[in-house]
Design a protein around this nucleic acid. Structure first.
Lengths: 334, 334
DNA sequence: CTGAAAGCGCTTACAG
DNA sequence: CTGAAAGCGCTTACAG
C-alpha cells in the first residue's frame, strides 16, 4: 500500500507523534516542523489510514442505513438526503437492503455492528423486538425514518400519516367530491396502513359523508397492487368520482387501469396520491398528491443522528409537514 | 463497547490465538476447545471487530460506488444489483453521490482511499484523467458501469449504446414510421450521447430514410429537458409520426407535452424510450422502450469487481444485451 | 493442539 | 516544542 505515518515521520525527521499532531491540527509543534511535515506528506502523497484511526478512536465516520428496498423511489429520495448531510459532515453511508426480511435485517445489523458504524438510520419498516434488542446491544445512536414506535424509544422523523391522509381526503371533498374511494396500503401496517385509513375515515366523518366499506380496498403500496385494487373497485359497480391512493405508485396503477378502461382522469375520475415521488410529476396527467419531503426527511434524520453521535445527547423526534401538491389529476366538481 | 477477543480468551481459558483460530475456521485446536470457545462467544455475545480485522488483513470487505446522482431511477436499479451481490459475497457498499462534480468526486475518491475500500464501481460518468490517476494510485480493482473508456484500461459493463439506439429506431421503422424524430441526451456525451445519435442515423440510413436535422433535438436525459425538447420539436412544424427519446425520463416528458397539446400517444404520435426504468411501465400509455438490464448490470459489475478483489486477476469487459420491451406507446402505421 | 509475541497504522497520555 | 511507548482488537508466523 501507500506510505504510512511512519514513512513520513522518517522522511521528515520527526516522530510519528508529531506527524499525527499536525495531521489532526493539534497543538505542539513549531511552524517550521509543521511546514516540513506538510511538505513531505504532499511529496509522498500520504493519506491517513481511516481504519487504523477508527480502531483507536472508536469512531469510523460511517453510518448504516437500512431500507426495505433500496431501489424504490421512496428510498432513493431519502437516501439522497441522508447521503447529502452525511457527506457534508464527513461521514460515509453504508446501504443495506433488508428486503423486508427479518433474517436479512438481523444479518445486516450484525455486519453493521462488526463494522463499528457510528450510528444507524432505520427506515420505513416497523421496529420489531428482535431488531430493537440487537440495536440496543450495539449501544450506538439510532434514528427511525418514515416509521416510529411507541414501545421502543428511538427518536424518529416522519410525517403525520393520519393527518396527511385527512388532508388528502379533505382536499377531494373541498373539490366537491362525496363518493370517494380509497386504495389503502397494507391493512395491518401500523405506520402507513391503519393511520391513513383513519385519516380518510375521519375526514369523511367530519364532512358528514358516510363511510362505505366497498369503497375501501387494499394494496401493498406497489404499482401492481394499485392496478389490482383499481380493478376491484371498478368491479364493485359502486359509484365514486375520486380515489385517494395511499401511495403514488398505487395511484399510477389506478390511473393506468382507468386509462385502459377508457375512464379519463380527471374528467371522469379524480385521483390523488401520496408521497410525491418523481413519477407524480411525470404522470399523465400529472398527479396531485400529498407530498412527503423525502430529501428533507433524509437530511434531517442524518442531522439528528450525527448530532447524537457527536454530542452523545438524545434528540427530539420530528414530525415533518406534509403539503398537497396540486397538479392535474383532480377535477373540481360543480 | 462489547467484549473483545481477549475477554473471551480469558473466560474460555485459552489464548487469543486459539479464539482467533476457531473464529476463522482455521485448524489447530481440539473439538473440545472449539466447543468451549464457541460457547463462551455465545454467552458473552461476542462479535469480532471488523475494523481491527481490516487493519491487519488489509481487507475491509467493503466496496465504494460512485453515482452521478444516487436518487435517479437509473442509479436505484443498478445499486440494487450491486448491493445484492455484494451482500451475497460478504461485502458492504458505501454509496457516493458525485453530483457530476469533479471536486466532489475527487473528495470521494480520497475518502474511499482513506477508508481502505477493497474496490470501486464507477458509474455513468465519463472517466477523466484526474479520476484515473487517483484511482490507479489507490491500487485497487475498479470497474466501470454504464460507461467505458478507451484511454483508461478499466473493465466495464454496459450496453452497446449505438446498437441499442439502432434497434429502437429500426423498431419504429418496421412499425411503418419514416418521419422519426430523436430527442437525444447531451450532445457531447461520448457514452450516452454521440453513440445513440449514431445508431439512430445509421438505422435511418440503412433503411433509406434521409436524416433531417430539424428532427434531432437535444436534452440532458432528464424529464424536464424531455419536455423542452418536445416543445421545440413541435415548434419546428416539421412532420414526424414517431420520436425516439434517449432516456425514459425524456420520453415521459415528451408524452406529457404531447398530452397537453392534445396529441394522443400512440394514436397521433408514437414514442419509444430508452432504459426501461420503473416509470416506463407506469406511464400512460405504458412506454415501449429499449431496456438496459439495470439490476443485472449492477450484479455483474459487483461480481466482476469481487472476482478481481478475490483473485487479483483482471477481468473481461462485458457488453450486456439490450431488448425492446413492447408496451403501448408505439402504433403500427398501415 | 496451544500460546507468547510481533505487528497492522494510527493516537494519546506522559515525560522531558 | 518533541519523542518513546503503550495500546486499539485483531491475525499470524514461530516455537513448543
Amino acid at each position: 500500500m501507500g506510505p504510512t505515518i511512519k514513512d513520513v515521520a522518517k522522511k521528515a525527521n520527526v516522530s510519528v507523534a508529531t506527524v499525527s499532531r499536525v495531521l489532526n491540527n493539534q497543538p505542539g509543534y513549531s511552524e517550521k516542523t509543521k511546514k516540513k511535515v506538510l511538505q513531505v506528506i504532499e511529496e509522498m502523497g500520504y493519506q491517513p489510514n481511516a481504519i487504523a484511526r477508527g480502531l483507536i478512536n472508536k469512531r469510523t465516520q460511517t453510518i448504516g442505513v437500512l431500507f426495505p428496498s433500496v431501489s424504490s423511489m421512496f428510498s432513493s429520495g431519502v437516501l439522497h438526503g441522508i447521503e447529502h448531510t452525511a457527506h457534508e459532515r464527513d461521514h460515509s453511508v453504508i446501504v443495506c437492503n433488508t428486503d423486508e426480511d427479518g433474517k436479512r435485517t438481523m444479518k445486516y445489523l450484525q455486519v453493521l455492528r462488526e463494522k463499528q458504524v457510528d450510528g444507524i438510520i432505520f427506515t420505513s419498516e416497523v421496529m420489531k423486538e428482535e431488531y430493537y434488542n440487537a440495536l440496543t446491544m450495539m449501544n450506538i445512536p439510532v434514528v427511525l425514518l418514515a416509521t416510529s414506535s411507541v414501545r421502543y424509544p428511538f427518536p424518529f422523523v416522519k410525517v403525520d400519516d393520519k393527518q396527511a391522509a385527512y388532508s388528502a381526503t379533505e382536499y377531494l371533498i373541498k373539490k366537491g367530491h362525496r363518493k370517494i374511494a380509497m386504495i389503502s396500503g397494507t391493512e395491518e401496517d401500523p405506520i402507513a396502513g391503519t393511520p391513513r385509513i383513519e385519516g380518510y375515515r375521519e375526514a369523511l366523518g367530519d364532512y358528514g359523508i358516510p363511510f362505505q366499506k366497498n369503497l375501501l380496498v387494499f394494496g401493498d403500496f406497489g404499482y401492481r397492487s394499485g392496478r389490482i385494487a383499481m380493478e376491484k373497485l371498478l368491479q364493485t359497480k359502486a359509484e365514486f368520482s375520486a380515489v385517494f391512493a395511499a401511495s403514488d405508485e398505487m395511484a399510477a396503477g389506478a390511473i393506468n387501469v382507468a386509462y385502459q378502461h377508457g375512464i379519463k382522469v380527471p374528467d371522469h375520475l379524480s385521483v390523488i396520491g401520496y408521497d410525491n415521488l418523481q413519477i407524480a410529476e411525470m404522470s399523465v396527467p400529472p398527479l396531485t398528491t400529498v407530498a412527503q419531503p423525502l430529501f428533507e426527511m433524509g437530511k434531517l434524520a442524518a442531522e439528528m443522528l450525527l448530532t447524537m453521535i457527536e454530542t452523545g445527547t438524545r434528540v427530539e423526534s420530528r414530525i415533518m409537514p406534509h403539503t398537497i401538491i396540486e397538479r392535474q389529476s383532480v377535477a373540481q366538481l360543480s
